[in-house]
Amino acid sequence: MSHIKDFEIDKQICMQFEEDRERFAGAVVPPTFQNTLFTYPTLDELSEAVQFEKQHYVYGRGTNPTVEIVEKKLAALERGEECKTFASGMAAITAAIINSVQSGDHILCVSHLYYSTMELLKYLGKFNISHSVVYSTNTEEISQAIQSNTKVIVLESPTDMSYRLVDLPAVSRLAKTNGIRTIIDNTWATPLFQKPLTHGIDIVVHAASKYLGGHSDVLGGALITSKKIMKSIFDKEYLLMGAVMPPSEVTLLLRGLRTLPLRLLAHQENALKVAAFLESHPHVAKVHFPGLATHSDYLLGKKLLTGYSGLMSFELREAHYRQVEKVVNKLKAFKIGVSFGSFESLVSSPNLSNNEGQLLREHISPGTIRLAVGLEDINVLIDDLKQSLMD
């Protein structure tokens, strides 16, 4: 019952929280403050604002009334203290990671992370910041992978591509015991279906371009964390790097949030049916989707997740590129493309024809196909998969 109550609270946050319609002449949609700067009556007042820019509107690279509305909504949805939006999901996670480390530190990655996040960690090697990956979601194995200079644990739950779940409360306790900060990418579940901060995670990251925006027309990211951590990020990685989300994009994100609860329920309904169909197909070796009762982390998911989004993967029995290519190219309703979380159904694969050895080293089957199940008619989607998987 508490999950139902939380979902109803979140619906109200998505639609009305912090919009203060009286302030904007009763407008049902807050105005977009497109201006880049704000003026003050006196030099003293401007000087005060510049010194405490986090609490004042000074320049577009800092704070903005339209942007603040969305940030307050996202913080409330995650049950966090503060949120800042960024120009992309990668800008957000870059700020979170850079804020958390210095030269000589080590970053521990749990299982599979987004490809660009891994590329970022490799890039940080030039600054003497190392990283390693533990290809397991088992807390004990994660503990054994901690090094003396580990300062951050970065994870996704469900994990990228393999969609395993991490025991967030256990990993949080482990990290705090060792003085390690935790950062999670919560894009898959969204704040409606998982709230990592309530389990002790330090920083939550979102690619707002996905479910939060929901229409494939918004590029943005967000960080939600404590006031203490956010003050440090705002003063350094936010203001100095300047990768802010512009008001025009935030307005589209605000529109997306209004329908997020309804869209997620529809994604979930379609995804559960697609996953069940794939699991029963003779050409499919395995389906990676935590909403299936046969999933190895199903019971953990019942504790941590209050719902399931539309992103999953499955493995073909003929696990090689030519078979993956054949199946993917036959799909019609599922369009071939990157990203996920919007109204359209998409298909892709980590198998790029020349990287099967790497996939095996990373414990990913070369027969893996990723599906982002959209909002189309479920019969159309399943019929499309049927004809694609035919001999």
Rank of each mutant, 00 (worst) to 15 (best):
I180E: 00
G220K: 10
L304N: 08
R263A: 03
G256N: 05
T190W: 14
A189K: 01
T190V: 05
I183W: 00
F234I: 03
E237T: 13
L299S: 14
S216Y: 15
H206Y: 15
G291M: 03
L240A: 09
V284T: 05
T182S: 08
I184N: 04
L212Y: 08
A243N: 14
G221M: 08
G214M: 03
N178T: 05
V287W: 12
T294Y: 10
A266W: 14
K176E: 09
F289K: 08
K302N: 06
H206C: 01
V250M: 05
K236S: 12
G307F: 08
I201C: 00
P246M: 14
H288W: 15
I201H: 06
T251V: 04
L305D: 02
A275W: 12
V250Y: 01
L197V: 04
G179T: 02
W188L: 13
T259L: 13
G242P: 11
M245K: 04
L219A: 10
L265F: 08
L174I: 02
L278G: 06
Q268T: 07
S226K: 07
L262T: 10
P261V: 11
L311D: 04
P246C: 14
R255M: 12
S232H: 13
L264M: 15
M312P: 09
L253F: 11
F277Q: 09
D202F: 09
S248C: 01
L260Q: 00
A293F: 13
E249D: 12
V244W: 15
S313H: 07
A175G: 05
N186F: 00
G214E: 01
M312G: 06
L265K: 15
K231Q: 14
H215S: 09
K236V: 10
A285I: 03
E269D: 15
Q194I: 00
K195L: 09
L260E: 01
L304R: 00
I224R: 03
A222I: 10
E237L: 04
M245F: 04
N178H: 15
D297L: 06
A293I: 14
S209Y: 00
G200W: 13
H288M: 13
D297A: 07
T190A: 03
F314Y: 09
I203T: 11
F277C: 08
R255N: 13
F277S: 07
K273N: 12
